Amino acid sequence: MDDRTLAADINAACRLTGTFTLRSGQVADTYFDKYLFEAQPALLERVAAAMVPLLSDDTELLGGLELGGVPIATMVSAKTGLPALFVRKEAKTYGTCKLAEGPEVAGRRVTLIEDVITTGGAVRDATRALREAGAIVETVVCAIDRSPEGTNPLDDVGLEVRSVLTRADLDAAAAIE
């Protein structure tokens, strides 16, 4: 697959300009509305296909983060046969009261699946919670890494970030259009 083509297609589908407050509280003039590519089956499939080679070889479970990571993790699961796990922002207060829906995580290697990472707040929270539940979490694979180039926003929790596309990839695609 040609990553420049994927970058151009993702950029065209989901780049919005204006004034946006991110989850981190930062204000940005560009926003990548991941739901605009996740809602397009062909584009979602291409993102998932690009994620497969980024998975750690020892991955046992794919942890899709609520909400945007869930459709991607489901598609990657379908491509690899690895079971998916759906990680909530907060544990339910009823029923099973679980944070992570799906197979048991204790002692298993979970690769997190996320849509967009800027500061990594949601991934950091999920990593800590899954580790408390006994999971081994060392890697997150994201569709778009918009953190500053050359930095790992999740170093503080010992998480390796692997991305299909970076902000620089999408900016380069936008410059060509």
Rank of each mutant, 00 (worst) to 15 (best):
K34A: 07
P83M: 00
P71W: 02
K79E: 04
L22D: 13
R131D: 11
D9K: 07
G150Q: 05
L54F: 00
I117W: 04
V141N: 01
A126Q: 02
R4V: 12
D29V: 08
I117F: 08
V137D: 09
D33Y: 05
D169C: 05
G107E: 09
Q40V: 14
V137H: 10
A106N: 11
V164C: 11
S163A: 15
T96S: 15
L112T: 02
V27Q: 14
T96D: 13
T127F: 05
I117K: 01
G95R: 04
G107N: 13
R167K: 15
I144K: 02
T151K: 05
Y94T: 08
S56W: 01
G68S: 04
S56C: 10
V76A: 00
D3I: 13
P83I: 00
A42R: 06
V52P: 15
A91M: 03
A78W: 11
L99P: 07
L61W: 11
L36V: 04
L6R: 03
A73M: 03
Y35L: 06
R131M: 05
L165G: 11
V27L: 12
V27C: 15
R146P: 00
T119M: 10
A126R: 02
D57W: 03
I136S: 14
T139A: 03
R146S: 10
T118L: 06
L65H: 02
K98H: 08
G25A: 14
T127I: 02
Q26M: 11
L36N: 08
P148Q: 06
G63Y: 08
T5S: 15
E177V: 10
G150I: 06
E104I: 09
A133E: 12
A129H: 10
P83W: 05
I176S: 13
E101F: 02
L16H: 14
D9Y: 07
G81T: 03
K92F: 08
I144A: 03
V161R: 00
V164D: 07
R128H: 09
A133P: 02
G68L: 01
L44M: 09
L154D: 02
T151S: 15
A122S: 15
Q26H: 12
L99D: 07
A7E: 06
K92R: 10
I144T: 00
R108S: 08
R108M: 10
T21N: 14
A173R: 04
G121M: 03
P103G: 11
T111R: 09
A13D: 12
A7G: 09
R128V: 14
T96G: 08
P153E: 01
I72Y: 00
L159C: 05
L99Q: 06
L6P: 13
A84E: 02
G68Y: 00
G102C: 06
I113P: 12
R131S: 06
G134C: 05
L170G: 01
E160Q: 14
A135F: 07
R162P: 12
L67A: 13
F20D: 15
T17R: 12
P71L: 02
A49P: 14
E177D: 13
G121I: 02
C97F: 06
F86K: 01
Y94D: 14
E104T: 12
A48L: 04
M75P: 09
D3R: 13
